[in-house]
Design a protein around this nucleic acid. Structure first.
Lengths: 352, 352
DNA sequence: GTGAAAGCGCTAACAA
DNA sequence: TTGTTAGCGCTTTCAC
């Protein structure tokens, strides 16, 4: 071990950030000494100097909703590979709190992933003008986004229910501000009409087990013999409510959930529209990373979303990317499909 | 609106951080102008100057495990009230990754909440020597911690199973590094012996639906007629595996999960040991906030954990706090109790 | 009650 | 290849 030569401030800095500018020996020496002294660079000072923080934020309406944890998880894992630390914000399904969180986080993050944002379009656009933003399940032209397209799976669901002999469906709706809910309503209305079925939409505020359970009386009143719920948790609630009334599934009633979360893996297992939340998280992270790397805050090439699209493909659905649209926001679209399980058993149901 | 007088740098700073030093009129004026201009202080610069970041980190082994989201959620909500932003780290059940995450986050957080850490005691102690650390479900003397004490609920579970006529139980174990798992094993062994029952421990690596499902052959081989699983997710897997083999629950077999997560709210609903993850999150946040506020990094008074204890009480269990022990780490203990639901129905079971 | 000035620890020109 | 210098935007004595 050679005697340690004194080096300057900048040499130390360079040893960490751009070692190729120094002689290997110097780098080596600095790094070793630093390790021995337990020196670690001060993030705040670095950020102050460079304007870069190495942090991103992901904001979700409710981390306790089982759709989000896998998304956040794969996002964080992907972020780690780019050495980005991730802030988590839970807006509690409130646009107002979402705005507050964003304001609080903005001064120390380089970019945002807003998952199922409840925020107004205007506010999102204002934010996106400031720094890279990737949306998940919100379709704003010109802003990078990952969309889980439920229309495929929803269509399959309606057709299956028709085949089982149902004529009157109920849709347990999700939050009004949710893009996914909007897409599901629309698809459902369109496809049902084409198939000659009627759909009763039942509003259920915040998607929860309790909400599902309580909506059963409305379902029964509607005369529906099958229901599609906004998500698997609501669906579980419906299942419980039906049981209490002695309506058995799938013998007397068919049920379909959405998202294919942990909540669908029960006994009996839920028929559900698979959503690939984990793929969406990975894709969103990838997109944001690309945005961050390109100097002008726009994707430099087609690399973005590659992994996400692959993952979507792996889920068996039609995954793919649409290129730039009008404003220049990359859009990754993840397809869905119906996973048929116990709650709509073909062997049971109306035609059994 | 008076004409805006030019004020100095420092006045602006004070208006935000210590308004009591300024005349109300000045404060008012600065704040209004700041709002109009959209000015927000630069966190990095503030941190550089004060050494405080206003950030904390919560590290979990697997955010996709339904035990953690409610914990993280209430933690983040509580942190918000103290204007703390929260980083989320997912260690993927690996001690090594946990260490890396902590190292990455350490330079920009004021404190850590380590939930179910897989890290070695030594590393945890080293970290705790550096900055405030609150542990969840890890019992290290002298370090602040929140413990969900499963022994109460586990004991009730064993007694219920005995009453149902079972003599041979299986325990589907959790990760070896998990304190909760250790506590559950120990309690189970002790109580079962006292009750004259035998317990077969079946190892299942990472707790998951698949692991539970695959462990069914071992359960059957063991001759057990009832099983207690490390958590509800594993329990659901077991349920599915049993069904495949035509073993029906609770008629032929009794099943108990742990944590009382979303995964227990199914049809049939799972009998489970309620764990109050949300209370634990709130209590941990509270504890950390108190630690952060006391200049020496130790709680100043008994305020810490008050909310958590209250919440624990609300869950119907015996919640409470132990005061300082040897080293000075506050310890909040949250009790548990058995929630009896469909998978161990008293009307069914072995004695039906 | 308010302003002036000195850093916090780092990076990034610019020199050498 | 390395050192010197000038800030990044804030807080904080210390004067006034």
């Amino acid at each position: 071990m050679a005697a340690a030569a004194r080096v300057s401030r900048s040499t130390v800095s360079r040893a960490f950030t751009r070692p190729q500018l120094l002689s290997p020996a110097t780098v080596e020496q600095v790094l070793t000494t630093a390790a021995r002294l337990g020196y670690v660079g001060n993030q705040a000072a670095r950020a102050l100097s460079t304007g870069r923080f190495g942090n991103i934020a992901v904001v979700v309406p409710d981390i306790a909703n089982p759709f989000f944890p896998p998304l956040v998880r794969s996002l964080q894992l992907a972020a780690e590979t780019a050495d980005l630390a991730v802030f988590l914000g839970d807006s509690d399904e409130s646009a107002e709190r979402e705005a507050k969180l964003i304001a609080r986080l903005a001064p120390q993050v380089e970019g945002f992933v807003l998952a199922s944002p409840r925020l107004s379009e205007q506010l999102i656009r204002e934010l996106a003008a400031t720094r890279p933003v990737v949306l998940v399940n919100r379709d704003l032209d010109g802003i990078a986004r990952v969309l889980i397209d439920s229309s495929g799976g929803m269509t399959e669901a309606v057709l299956l229910l028709k085949k089982l002999g149902h004529q009157r469906l109920a849709y347990l709706a999700g939050p009004r501000d949710s893009w996914s809910d909007g897409q599901r309503r629309t698809t459902l209305a369109r496809v049902s009409e084409q198939a000659g079925l009627t759909v009763e939409v039942i509003e259920t505020g915040r998607p929860s087990y309790a909400a599902g359970r309580e909506s059963v009386s409305a379902i029964v009143r509607s005369g529906a013999t099958a229901a599609i719920a906004f998500d698997d948790v609501v669906s579980q609630g419906v299942l419980a409510g039906l049981e209490v009334r002695g309506i058995s599934v799938p013998a007397d009633f068919s049920l379909v959930g959405c998202d294919d979360t942990l909540a669908a893996l029960t006994t009996p297992a839920l028929t559900t529209v698979s959503a690939g939340a984990a793929s969406a998280g990975a894709a969103a992270a990838q997109l944001l990373i690309t945005l961050l790397q390109s100097p002008d805050g726009r994707p430099a090439d087609a690399a973005a979303g590659g992994e996400g699209a692959a993952a979507a493909g792996a889920s068996g659905a039609a995954g793919g990317r649409a290129g730039e649209d009008g404003g220049g926001g990359e859009c990754v679209r993840i397809g869905t499909h119906l996973v048929v399980r116990g709650t709509t058993a073909v062997r049971g149901g109306m035609v059994a």
